[in-house]
Design a protein around this nucleic acid. Structure first.
Length: 828
DNA sequence: ATTAGGG
DNA sequence: CCCTAAT
């Protein structure tokens, strides 16, 4: 019955011939006919016969009785016999290879049948077989189905059958967890392994196989193989497949063939441990290699593992050896390529691959190990087995195709112990996984990555197989990270790592980047939603500030390339910026209404940024810096202010240049008249006017700064106090009216001697421009200095001064953007 | 080897 | 933390 069903399925799914290699087609075309009609039976019989011949000892063969049978039935129903398999007509459609390399004939030469592979924990010595086939699997005929017995290497069989798992030579495309696992096991027996493996087997390339006897084996692989380009459809087919079969058609997949006898279990245990440490010891080979036993391990013993049906087409002329190889290949391919294993604990799917076994509830003393199930699921991303081969040559090699309706079933015998390897907890179920592998766990062994060198892919996989240990960041580390990012910015993780985590080997820059990512997220969510060690809110605020700041920086950097404002592209540009911003900030943003444009700012061409201010909801809105430039007349203030403004704007910082007195205001008008010697005002009055002039602008100034605009102010309270004081007013009296104005984040004092300034010419237009008076002013300036001051030698070249200023200001602007709060002048 | 993102 | 694509 099984066979029958199989055939049907086969037919449905594979118009087998499609893929037959040209050679096969040519030679065996005649067979086609034979098979076409009765083929179902014939094929099976043939296969059975072949298998029978091949394997004399079938003691191990077991019919898969459980679910499989039912499944088969179902399958049968779903796929009525009507569908004639092997119809030439259908071939074209199914032929993945576009027929270029396929010939119609090929089909006839192939025998189709269902192969059931059983992995058993027998103590058979498969030495001979293994040598020939390079593996211990022994195909045998059972009830019309070919059964492969996987012989476990008993302890005693170490010497002889270790090679069973050796499948490295398989199709070029093969490379996966399953194989790895296999290798892993055999690894321990390396000695045996190496000693027993038939050179021919190991070295034989897939190609050679097909050539021998011109046999073609088709491995039915995932539909993707023949579906060629559409991954989507492929996935779909799988889905459908599962939908239809899932319930009763468990696809059982077994990951490892290694069976372990009780006596062997010890070995496994050792292996597990060894493997655990193996990450670092990937080179270890000998069984006796140093095993690093570490923490508690869970030993799992999978009693039975059923693998989906395996369909193999093989010419009668094929040799037993080739059949074995094909089967092995098919099996390996299927296991490694087409499926992933899912894990279920107590009937519940465990999707989080990152969970540790312990977290999942799988522990040594856990009582429900028996409730642990593995599911075999289609791997939508599985690589094409044959992909590695030039498409045109696929046929020449063994090709195994798994159609969506077919599955290869592997069944392990009760005694067979399967060990979950790294993949064990690696891939968890895909949504549609239905097939469940029932595993009785009786022992525990930590999943470990096998290390073998036979296959590069394997190696890679092995290396990545094990998840690194989870190491939550401590507050200290977070602080270091935040600090580093504030300094270096995001996007320079390498530098961040080197500057702050040089010694932390376990923190890679990617980790730091990831941590930053999570920190930003954490900072945005409510404290109640946060988990783990609480990070001080202060740090989170810094994270937000830094993130907002750097996000804007990045954004602006990207926008800068097109400094020239072009009305035609304005909208587009901003749209992009907004999108970018939204993306980078990950939160909503909004444009603030443009504050009334003040008519006193000198430069008005800063189109790009001045009108809009963004900030994340989290409140991480970088504020602008208040930069005051002071200095005697002719010290170069205006020039440097203009340069500085240009610089900041080109650096992506919204900037405005202000100047006091602001002659545009009503108060400013008065001041202007006074300065022009057109009016005589009392010194105190004029002082207060100047002060009033600044107060007039205070609110707008604060608004601008909080909106993110950096203000460069040419002269401020210091000038007012210094000049008035120079005229004889008490300095404290002069400062009084200024108290409460916004304190500059930085005061750039362009230091130049009065004499030198006078040399620069231009003096004489206004009454204060007299050297002696400038000297007094200079002295008062000095008394006003505080920590926010930066003395710049204005005697240097303009470029020199410019450079110094830029450096100072940039740091200050960044500091402000990162959260430096505004303070008040001469308060408290 | 790094960076940037998505999972 | 992992995995990948893109640099």
């Amino acid at each position: 019955m099984v066979s029958h069903k199989c055939v049907e399925e086969f037919s449905l799914q594979f118009p087998a011939n499609a893929r037959a290699p040209r050679s096969a087609r040519k030679k065996r075309s005649f067979k086609k006919e034979e098979i076409t009609e009765n083929d179902k039976t014939c094929a099976i019989d043939l296969l059975a016969t072949v298998a029978e011949n091949l394997l004399s000892e079938t003691g191990s063969s077991h019919m898969s009785i459980d679910k499989p049978v039912e499944d088969h039935c179902l399958v049968k129903e779903e796929f009525p016999v009507e569908d004639k398999p092997l119809k030439p007509a259908t071939l074209p459609e199914f032929n993945p290879y576009q027929g270029s390399s396929m010939s119609p004939c090929g089909f006839s030469s192939v025998i189709s049948g269902k192969v059931e592979i059983e992995a058993e924990g027998f103590s058979h010595s498969g030495g001979i077989d293994s040598c020939q086939a390079g593996q211990d699997l022994k195909p045998s005929v059972d009830g019309g189905a070919v059964v492969l017995d996987a012989r476990p290497n008993g302890v005693g069989s170490l010497g002889g059958s270790s090679s069973r798992t050796k499948v490295p030579s398989m199709g070029a495309g093969v490379s996966l967890g399953a194989l790895d696992d296999v290798h892993m096991f055999s690894r321990d027996d390396d000695e045996n392994f190496s000693g027993y493996i038939c050179p021919r087997v190991t070295k034989k390339s897939p190609r050679s196989v097909p050539r021998v006897g011109d046999r073609r084996i088709r491995k039915i692989l995932a539909s993707r193989h023949w579906k060629g380009g559409s991954r989507h459809s492929e996935a779909k087919s799988w889905r459908n497949y599962y939908l239809h079969h899932q319930r009763s058609y468990p696809i059982k997949k077994r990951k490892y063939f290694d069976h372990i006898s009780d006596s062997v279990s010890d070995d496994y245990r050792l292996r597990s441990k060894m493997q655990r440490g193996s990450r670092a010891v990937s080179t270890m080979k000998g069984p006796g290699a140093s095993f690093v036993s570490s923490d508690s391990h869970v030993r799992l013993r999978i009693k039975s593992f059923r693998v989906p049906e395996l369909f193999v087409e093989i010419p009668e002329t094929a040799t037993v050896g080739s059949l074995k190889r094909m089967v092995m290949e098919a099996v390996s391919t299927l296991l490694s390529d087409g499926h992933r294993v899912g894990l279920m604990v107590q009937g519940k799917k465990v999707r989080d691959d990152n969970k540790t076994l312990h977290q999942t509830g799988i522990s040594q003393d856990n009582t429900h190990l028996d409730s642990l199930d593995f599911s075999l699921e289609p791997s939508s991303e599985a690589p094409h087995l044959l992909s590695s081969n030039p498409s045109g040559h696929v046929c020449e090699e063994l090709s195994m195709c798994r159609t969506s309706d077919m599955d290869t079933l592997f069944k392990t015998e009760p005694d067979l112990a399967l060990f979950p390897s790294g993949s064990f907890d690696k891939e968890t179920a895909a949504d549609d996984s239905k097939a469940l592998v029932h595993a009785a766990l009786t022992e525990l062994s930590p999943p470990q990555p096998p290390r073998h060198k036979s296959n590069k892919q394997q190696q890679q996989q092995q290396q990545t197989a094990q998840r690194r240990m989870r190491r939550p960041f401590s507050v200290t580390e977070v602080e270091a990270l935040v600090q580093a990012v504030e300094k270096l910015g995001t996007g320079r993780w390498r530098d961040v790592k080197h500057s702050a985590f040089e010694d932390a080997d376990h923190r890679t820059y990617v980790d730091l980047k990831d941590k930053w990512k999570t920190l930003v997220h954490t900072a945005k969510i409510s404290p109640q939603q946060r988990r783990g060690e609480p990070v001080p809110q202060e740090l989170l605020n810094r994270v937000l500030n830094a993130h907002g700041y750097w996000s804007q920086q990045h954004m602006e950097t990207l926008a800068l390339p097109k400094p020239d404002y072009n009305p035609a592209t304005f909208h587009t540009t901003w749209t992009n910026l907004l999108l970018m911003f939204r993306t980078s900030i990950g939160s909503s943003f909004r444009a603030l209404a443009l504050p009334p444009r003040s008519f006193n700012y000198l430069s008005s061409s800063s189109v790009r940024m001045e009108n809009l201010t963004f900030f994340s909801e989290a409140g991480a809105k970088p504020r602008g810096a208040l930069i005051v430039v002071e200095g005697l007349d002719r010290s170069g203030k205006s020039t440097q202010c203009a340069k500085l403004r240009s610089f900041l704007e080109s650096s992506g910082h919204p900037t405005e240049l202000w100047r006091f007195p602001d002659r545009e205001t009503s108060v400013g008008q008065m001041i202007s008249a006074y300065l022009s010697n057109k009016s005589q005002l009392d010194d105190r009055t004029i002082h207060l006017l100047f002060s009033a002039n600044r107060w007039e602008k205070r609110s707008l100034m604060e608004e601008k700064l909080k909106g993110g605009t950096t203000l460069i102010v040419d002269r401020y309270s210091y000038s007012g106090v210094a000049f008035s004081s120079a005229k004889g007013l008490g300095i404290e009296w002069c400062k009084a009216p200024e108290v409460g104005l916004l304190a500059p984040d930085s005061v750039l004092y362009l230091d130049i001697s009065p004499e030198r300034a006078a040399e620069r010419g231009g003096y004489g237009d206004e009454r204060y421009e007299r050297v002696d008076f400038q000297k007094k002013v200079s002295e008062f300036y000095q008394t006003l200095r505080d920590s926010s001051w930066k003395i710049i030698d204005a005697g240097d070249s303009m470029e020199e001064v410019e450079k110094k200023i830029q450096q100072v200001v940039l740091d200050k602007v960044k500091e402000c953007a990162l959260g430096k709060s505004l303070s008040l002048l001469w308060s408290s």
